[in-house]
Simulated scan of single mutants.
Amino acid sequence: MALASIFGTNLFHYEPDGVVEFYEAYPAVRDSFAQASRWTGLDVEPLLYQNGAYEDESERIQAVSVGLAAAQLGIQDVLVEKGLRPDVVGGLSLGGLVGSCVAGSVAREDLMRLLVASDHNPERPDANRAEGLAACYLGLDFEPDHYYGDGREGVFLSADFGCDAEGKVRIAMLSGYRDALERLAAEVPEGLVNVTEGADLAVHSPLREHSRSLLRAEVAPLTFADPRLPLCSCLEQRTLRTAEEVREMFADNVVKAISLVHVNEEMRLHDTELALVVGPSPVMNVLRYPFPTVFVDSPAAVPQAVAAVFEHGVRLRRA
């Protein structure tokens, strides 16, 4: 019977209230933000409150990524202080990188420095064709080829979040060329595909191949170790067990679709009895999981997590 920690995907915008409450309540969270500031040169206040002024979108995304990673790591430290040490970890996108730190595969300092070194909007060969994202709410029996992939030019599956909590719809994120996403949205019933305003990067798609090449060079000098805990990949249903597998995941993360379904199913193979979704996660909180789940996005959820461990009879490891 295993306790799992799940870390959510990067959030281009999120309300920091719960993180601020954690910061004020727990030294471990304050320490995490202080470390992130020291390693990246970014001030704590904009990292915490998400209120910084930036020269371009890439710089803003870097800061949001550092702030969210600091929050997730700090809240995980709080849980460990309460004796809630995970037996298995995993996450989506940025959450997968944070999970790699928790699993002992990469140092926190290396992750933070990587996040501010990465260019989220480098020049690309087809820069004249705008990119975009779209939220997608699909029936359980939807036809994938109608929405993305070979059957739909310029549109790709970017994230598969699985079903909503009630099991009524499949929630996904599509990415690709904005004109292709807008054509798709116009063809389907209103509300099924919603092109996101202000999002101009086709994240987790083949259109980021140029970013992967840059990221490989940034990752190359970093030291990776074999994970000490099972690390469930979101890029395919598998457990990453070697340093090189984790290194490849860091590079592939920008071009491959992410899937909570992969993470959940792999965690189930590790006999997960309870999962803690760590940090702010507005998308993650409305999804269906194959095991009991506590969303630790404010200090009020910490005693709920402790109570859930006893309720479900999860045996905690000592170290």
Rank of each mutant, 00 (worst) to 15 (best):
V254W: 08
H262D: 09
V263C: 12
V255D: 13
Y289A: 04
E248H: 01
R268H: 10
N264F: 06
V255F: 08
P292H: 02
D252V: 07
V277Y: 13
V261D: 13
L287G: 03
R268D: 05
L276N: 10
P290I: 04
V261S: 11
P299S: 03
E265N: 15
P290R: 14
V263S: 11
P282F: 03
N285M: 09
T272R: 04
G279H: 06
V263E: 11
L274F: 04
D297C: 12
E266M: 06
L287W: 06
V296I: 13
S298T: 11
K256N: 10
F291K: 08
V278Q: 10
H270W: 03
H270K: 01
V277D: 08
H270G: 01
L276S: 06
N253L: 10
E273N: 01
E265R: 15
T293Q: 08
M249N: 06
L269D: 14
V278Y: 08
D271S: 04
E273A: 09
V294R: 14
V261Q: 15
L260W: 13
E265F: 01
F250S: 01
M284K: 00
V254T: 14
D252E: 15
N285I: 00
P282H: 11
M267T: 07
P280K: 02
P282I: 08
R288S: 11
L260Y: 11
A257K: 13
V261F: 12
H262C: 09
S298D: 14
L274K: 08
I258S: 12
R268N: 06
P282N: 08
L260H: 14
H270S: 02
S259W: 13
E248Y: 00
L274M: 06
P292R: 05
L269W: 07
E273H: 04
L287S: 07
V283H: 12
A257M: 05
G279E: 10
L269P: 00
A300V: 05
A251G: 01
E266F: 01
A275H: 01
A275Y: 04
F295P: 04
G279K: 11
P280W: 00
M267C: 08
S281K: 07
S298L: 02
V278T: 11
P282Y: 09
L269C: 14
T293N: 05
E265G: 03
S259T: 13
